[in-house]
Design a protein around this nucleic acid. Structure first.
Length: 242
DNA sequence: AACTACCTCAACCGCGATAGC
DNA sequence: AGCTATCGCGGTTGAGGTAGT
């Protein structure tokens, strides 16, 4: 049973408490959180220590705004994992499950509320797939002279090459890939083999092909695809996040 | 400048899973 | 097998900051 005592301190951590916890972890490593707190005289529960370390003190944590590429990953991964924030956070280097959870609550749920629809409704999934995610994807463009995002609706196995109802959204972004972002970009660029994404051919009516292409100053051509449906975004055959 | 509304995010809680005795 | 301690997760809260009026 987690130790509950009147002596346990709650609320915001002081710099002194932080340094005590860091010192303790440097000596004994993570785990046995109650003991860690005790040996350096921290009047905090093990639970509180663990949370402070994972969400704030860990040296590899990223601070600041969730970038568009991180937002896109969160949306994609939420289709697959649902509210399993820690699972989603595993794929966002330097972000904690709390960061992901906070983003979802403050941004995504807010959008759903503004649209007067349930977060898990078909209507909101369509909004994510056809508006929000394409707009985020359009910001994922590496240094390039031109680029375009093509959204093809009403996909079926028979019209894969006919591309009806093509909308072209032009966009450009001069400085996308930074040192810190490169890892995330590597994840996104794996969509170039987007045909690997499995899907249910028996119900293809709302399947969508997201095709993102660009070329740089040297005329090197980039093409990234992924398939998605409003019902699900199944990435089962991708080993990217497994 | 003062007030209010909104936003962000750190921190808490409850609960289930797991490990160890 | 049953009990206790610990861990980890998801849901929620609220303090502090910021933007708008």
């Amino acid at each position: 049973m987690e130790q509950v005592s009147m002596e346990m301190k709650k609320g915001p951590w002081s710099p002194d408490e932080d340094s005590k916890l860091i010192h303790s972890i440097s000596l004994f490593g993570q785990g046995r959180w109650n003991s860690l707190a005790h040996v350096v005289g921290l009047k905090r529960s093990g639970k509180s220590c663990r949370l402070r370390w994972l969400n704030y003190l860990q040296p590899n944590l990223r601070r600041g705004k969730i970038t568009p590429q991180e937002q896109l990953l969160i949306l994609l991964l939420h289709f697959r994992f649902g509210n399993r924030w820690s699972k989603i956070a595993e794929n966002l280097p330097g972000r904690s499950d709390n960061d992901v959870k906070n983003y979802w609550r403050t941004k995504v749920q807010k959008h759903a509320k503004e649209l007067h629809c349930e977060i898990n409704s078909q209507q909101f999934r369509h909004f994510l797939l056809y508006q929000w995610m394409p707009s985020l994807l359009a910001q994922q463009i590496p240094t390039s002279s031109s680029s375009e995002l093509i959204v093809t609706e009403n996909y079926s196995p028979n019209n894969i090459n006919t591309c009806p109802n093509v909308n072209v959204i032009s966009s450009s972004m001069d400085s996308f890939v930074t040192e810190d972002d490169s890892n995330i970009w590597n994840n996104l660029s794996s969509f170039e083999d987007g045909i690997n994404i499995s899907h249910d051919f028996s119900t293809p009516s709302d399947m969508t092909l997201y095709n993102y292409s660009s070329h740089d100053e040297d005329d090197q051509y980039y093409c990234h695809n992924y398939w998605a449906s409003a019902e699900m975004l199944s990435l089962d055959e991708m080993d990217l996040w497994l």
